[in-house]
């Protein structure tokens, strides 16, 4: 069983919800990313989403765009990020999903990419600009190599697509809490909870919610219905605020820890 699926099974048995933390791989540099992943695991983060930086991410707001820009300027590449995961696997078994725009994957070669992910110990893929219709080949390859392929449901997704997207997804279903880019608006917990319950009528797979979540109160409220809560921009913003400071890792981890606790 894939590490992400296993994690959700464990959580279900313990009647717990997943806290999923997103950070951009290579921001401020790959070594710090590795330290953050380890520190996050120790503080109770269940799944790590590593952002593969891209020059033109369509679904991301200014905070994540800027972090991608910094990571690219520091020389982060798909190969180096896979190397980072491979290194981490000697120390931690925390489930790791890569979040990437499609072009870096396409350019790498879908088959080569999936094989390299499997070798490195990547557990899942999230590709925001690759709907299931365009993902058939990647999905087949991912399945062959036991890598989860996460698909999205948005507030605009009609029931027919909720059904097919949740059917296509493995690992978990990513519910985008609002119409917008990452980190620009605030999710309204009451409406999110309603939507999540609606999606859960179509699937027994874990439904995790991301976009516009930054406070322990939101995490707690959304966690009541969702199987997992994803925080990205707010963590990336904290990383940015502590750039160049020695206590970056503990400071960021302290913030993440406050979010993790909200689910306990």
């Amino acid at each position: 069983m894939n590490r992400i699926e296993k994690k959700f099974k464990e959580l279900k048995e313990q009647k717990r919800k997943a806290f999923i933390a997103f950070i951009t791989a290579g921001d401020p540099d790959l070594r710090t990313t590795a330290e953050l992943v380890e520190a996050f695991e120790h503080t109770g983060v269940d799944i790590i989403e590593l952002g593969v930086p891209f020059s033109d991410p369509l679904a991301d707001g200014p905070i994540i765009q800027a972090s991608y820009h910094r990571a690219l300027n520091k020389g982060a590449t798909v190969k180096k990020i896979l190397g980072l995961v491979e290194g981490l696997r000697r120390k931690t078994l925390v489930p790791i999903a890569l979040m990437s725009s499609y072009n870096p994957i396409f350019r790498f070669g879908e088959e080569e990419f999936i094989k390299a992910c499997a070798r490195a110990g990547v557990d899942g893929l999230i590709v925001p600009d690759l709907p299931p219709e365009e993902a058939k080949n990647l999905q087949r390859l991912a399945q062959e190599h036991h890598i989860a392929m996460v698909f999205f449901v948005a507030p605009t997704t009609m029931d027919g697509r909720i059904k097919s997207n949740t059917q296509a997804a493995t690992g978990f279903v990513y519910y985008v809490s609002l119409t917008g880019t990452t980190g620009t608006k605030t999710a309204v917990a009451s409406s999110v909870v309603k939507h999540v319950k609606h999606i859960q009528r179509f699937t027994s797979k874990p439904v995790c919610v991301g976009f516009g979540i930054s406070t322990p109160q939101q995490v707690e409220a959304i966690g009541r219905a969702a199987d997992g809560v994803i925080v990205g921009s707010a963590i990336v913003k904290t990383i940015e605020a502590h750039h160049g400071k020695r206590d970056l890792v503990p400071q960021v981890t302290r913030y993440v820890s406050s979010l993790v606790k909200a689910l306990r």
Partner: peptide
């Protein structure tokens, strides 16, 4: 599917798929 030979398609965030 919106393809011209092997080019084209609809590589869109889920939020835009309905519209």
């Amino acid at each position: 599917s919106g393809y011209y030979g092997s080019f084209g398609g609809r590589f869109a965030p889920e939020t835009l798929m309905a519209v």
